[in-house]
C-alpha cells in the first residue's frame, strides 16, 4: 500500500529523465541567448561611443566622405566620414547579386526542371564544393587572376568594385542557387501538370507558373546571397584596393565596411576615437544584417499567405 502511495506521489524515473533533458536544452538555449545578447550589447555600446564619448555627429559620420580617424582636419574636427565605405559595400553587394541571380536561376532551373537527375548529380557536388572553398582562396584567385585581368582589359590598377563584384559573384552563386533550387522544388507538381494540360510548352510552364510561384523563395535566396556578400571581408579586402575614397567608377580602388574593419582593427588602441570609429562601422554591418534577416522573414510570410 505504502509502496503504491510512494509511486503515485513521487515523480517517476521517466519524469526525472524528462526534466533533466529539458534542463539541458534550456541551459544551452540560455547560454546561446546570453552570447547573442552580449555580442549585440558590446557592438552597440562600442559603436555608439563614437557619438556619445567622442561627440561626433551621426549625420557627419553617415554623410562625410573623409576617413582618417587618427588625424583631425584643419578645423580640429575628427575625419570620420563613413559614406565611401557604405556606398562601396552596397555597390558590391547589389552588383554581385544582380550578376549572380540570372546564373543562379539558370543553374537552379537546369537542376530542377530541365535535367533533374543528371543536373543534380553533377551540379550538386559542384555547388557544395563552391561553398566549401575558404574565402581567402577566393581572394587569392581574385588577386592573382581577376585583378590583373581587369588591369589589362580596362587599365588602372585593377583593384576596385568590379574586382570585388566578380569575386563575390562566385561566392554568392552557390547560396542563391541552392536556396532557389529548394524553392523551385517546393512548387507542387500539379501546377506543372495543370499548365501542361492547358497546352503550355515546358518553357512557358517554367516562366509563367514555376518561377512565378517560386518568387518569394527566390527573393529570399537573393537576399541571403546579398547578406553573405555584404558581410564577406577577407576576399573583398584582397581585391578592393583598400583606399577609403568615394568610388568614382567600378575601377577605382575603394574600401568596404568589412575590408576597412579587417585592415584597421589591428592598428588602433581600444577606447580611442579611431578604434571607436571602427566599432561604429561594425554597428552598421550588424544593423544591415538585421535588416536582411527581417526582409527574409517578411517575404517568407507574404509567400506563405499566398498558399
Amino acid at each position: 500500500m505504502d509502496e503504491i502511495k510512494h509511486d503515485l506521489q513521487n515523480p517517476s524515473k521517466a519524469t526525472h529523465e524528462d526534466l533533466f533533458g529539458r534542463g539541458i536544452t534550456y541551459l544551452c538555449i540560455g547560454f546561446v541567448s546570453l552570447l547573442v545578447i552580449s555580442i549585440l550589447y558590446f557592438i552597440t555600446t562600442r559603436g555608439l561611443a563614437t557619438f556619445t564619448t567622442n561627440h561626433v555627429s551621426l549625420w557627419k559620420f553617415l554623410s562625410g566622405t573623409n576617413w582618417n580617424p587618427s588625424l583631425l582636419d584643419k578645423h580640429g574636427n575628427p575625419q570620420i566620414g563613413a559614406l565611401p565605405m557604405i556606398v562601396t559595400s552596397f555597390s558590391v553587394t547589389v552588383l554581385a547579386a544582380v550578376v549572380a541571380t540570372p546564373f543562379a536561376l539558370g543553374v537552379a532551373l537546369f537542376m530542377t526542371e530541365i535535367a533533374p537527375e543528371r543536373g543534380t548529380k553533377i551540379l550538386q557536388p559542384v555547388i557544395e564544393l563552391l561553398v566549401g572553398i575558404p574565402s581567402v582562396v577566393y581572394g587569392f584567385i581574385g588577386l592573382s587572376v581577376i585583378v590583373p585581368l581587369i588591369r589589362h582589359s580596362f587599365g588602372g590598377t585593377g583593384f576596385g568594385i568590379l574586382a570585388g563584384t566578380l569575386v563575390l559573384f562566385v561566392m554568392v552563386l552557390p547560396t542563391i542557387t541552392s536556396l532557389s533550387v529548394d524553392s523551385i522544388k517546393a512548387v507542387p507538381m500539379f501546377y506543372r501538370s495543370a499548365s501542361l494540360a492547358l497546352g503550355a510548352t515546358r518553357w512557358q510552364t517554367i516562366y509563367k507558373v514555376v518561377l512565378r510561384s517560386a518568387t518569394p523563395g527566390i527573393l529570399t535566396a537573393v537576399i541571403f546571397g546579398m547578406s553573405r556578400a555584404f558581410g564577406e571581408a577577407l576576399a573583398v579586402q584582397m581585391v578592393i584596393g583598400n583606399a577609403v575614397l568615394m568610388p568614382h567608377g567600378l575601377l577605382t580602388p575603394s574600401s568596404t565596411l568589412t575590408s576597412q574593419l579587417t585592415t584597421g582593427i589591428g592598428n588602433t588602441t581600444m577606447g580611442t576615437l579611431p578604434n571607436n570609429a571602427l566599432w561604429s562601422l561594425a554597428l552598421i554591418l550588424l544593423l544591415m544584417s538585421l535588416v536582411f534577416n527581417i526582409l527574409v522573414r517578411v517575404i517568407g510570410k507574404r509567400g506563405a499567405l499566398k498558399k
Binding site: 501546377y191 494540360a197 492547358l198 497546352g199 512565378r212 499566398k306
Partner: peptide
C-alpha cells in the same frame, strides 16, 4: 492539349 482539355482530381488552380 489545347483541343483535349483536362480537369484533375485535386483542384489545382495556380496561386494567381
Amino acid at each position: 492539349r489545347k483541343r483535349v482539355g483536362m480537369v484533375f482530381q485535386q483542384p489545382n488552380p495556380f496561386p494567381f
